[in-house]
Computed example of a mutant assay.
Amino acid sequence: MKQIVFLHAVPLSERGIIPQVDIEKIEQAQTRFAEAIGESPTDIEVKIEVQSGKPVDIILKVAQTYRSQLIILGSQSRSLLTEKLLGSTMANLSRRTPIPLLVLRPQLIYAYTSEELILRCQHLFRSLLLPYNGTQAADYLVQEVKQLAQQQSGRYLQQCKLCWVLEDSGRREIPKKILPQQAEQTLSQIKADLEVENLQVEIEVREGHSVTEVLEAAAMGDLSAIAVSSGTIGKLQEWLVSSFAAELLRFSWYPILFFPNERG
């Protein structure tokens, strides 16, 4: 990283009839940032932004101002119903920004010592798990990761694991749309394409529930993060059927590297 912008959005004060900027809370946030950050490394530019207003609007504005290439968010575990009733910054942001999002569990970060955290951050993107199922969103994800590999100045991205989970209906009379051999053949072609970019690539075909199997593949694969893409998070489709990416974000303790995809 060459530049880090720490951003805190302070809600407008509603003490009076007309919402106003909460000067007191802005000053408190600025003081806390200054104490927590201290002196930054000389080769990294550190900026602090504390603004008042709607979080998503502020995030988009600040990201555009600094030409940020990644937005890092913390995420609390919550149910689908709670998210629909209260909304989600991540869900709203994913609909409005083309910038990749990195979603982290604060509880997991708190458990690290300073020494462990430094090492974890150094290898945050070293080895990615790419869930694949033959959809447009999955192909988009592969191309985005390929672009990362092409553009990286160092070797922060070194390995990928492609995992295709064939959903098991549990009913013998319903044939699978994709056979394991077909899935493995498709993954082999993608593997060859990614290996051209100097990536080490593994492939795996599993059967069962997608989210459960992907999380198990991550646990068994010594991976840094799970990369996903979707165009339906927070949209009407999710009120009917929750998307795979949304479910993964709710249940995964692994960092999630999310690539917004307008085409779904």
Results as ranks from 00 to 15, higher is better:
C121W: 12
Y66Q: 04
R120A: 11
L60H: 08
L70G: 00
N92H: 08
R120V: 04
Q51W: 09
P41W: 10
R78Y: 03
K61E: 00
C121T: 12
I72K: 00
R96K: 13
T42C: 04
S40D: 12
L108S: 12
Y110T: 12
Q51T: 07
L93F: 06
E116K: 11
A36I: 01
D57E: 14
T113S: 15
L73Y: 06
T82V: 12
A36L: 13
R95M: 06
V103F: 03
L70I: 09
T42G: 03
L104K: 05
I59P: 08
I58D: 10
Q51Y: 07
Y66V: 00
T82C: 03
K47Y: 13
S52A: 13
L101W: 02
D43F: 10
I37K: 05
S94W: 04
Q107R: 08
I58L: 15
L73F: 05
K47Q: 13
D43H: 14
I37F: 11
A36F: 06
E83H: 02
L119H: 09
V50M: 04
L101F: 00
S40N: 08
L93I: 11
F33D: 03
K84D: 08
S52K: 04
I37T: 03
A34E: 14
L117T: 03
P100F: 02
N92T: 15
A29C: 06
L80I: 10
S75E: 08
E39L: 10
L81E: 15
T113A: 10
S114Q: 12
S79A: 10
S79H: 07
A63Y: 06
A63W: 02
L80M: 09
S68P: 04
A111W: 11
G74E: 08
G87C: 00
S75T: 09
E35L: 05
M90G: 03
G53L: 05
I71S: 05
K47T: 10
T65W: 05
K54H: 15
L60F: 01
L102H: 07
P55Y: 06
L60G: 02
T89L: 06
P55F: 01
V62S: 02
K47V: 13
K61Y: 01
I72G: 09
P106K: 09
L93H: 00
P41G: 12
R78N: 07
E27S: 14
S52G: 02
L102R: 03
E39R: 10
P55Q: 02
G53D: 05
Q64T: 04
L117H: 11
K84W: 13
R32A: 15
G87F: 09
Q69D: 15
I48D: 02
I72L: 14
I118E: 07
A29I: 12
R96A: 12
Q69A: 15
P55C: 06
S52Y: 03
Q69C: 12
I44P: 03
R105P: 08
R32G: 09
R120I: 01
L60M: 14
E39A: 12
S94H: 08
Q64R: 15
S94Y: 01
A91E: 09
L104R: 10
K47I: 13
E49S: 13
T89H: 04
K84P: 04
L104Q: 13
N92V: 07
I109H: 07
G74I: 09
D57T: 06
R78Q: 05
R105V: 00
V103N: 00
K54A: 06
L60V: 03
I118T: 10
A34D: 13
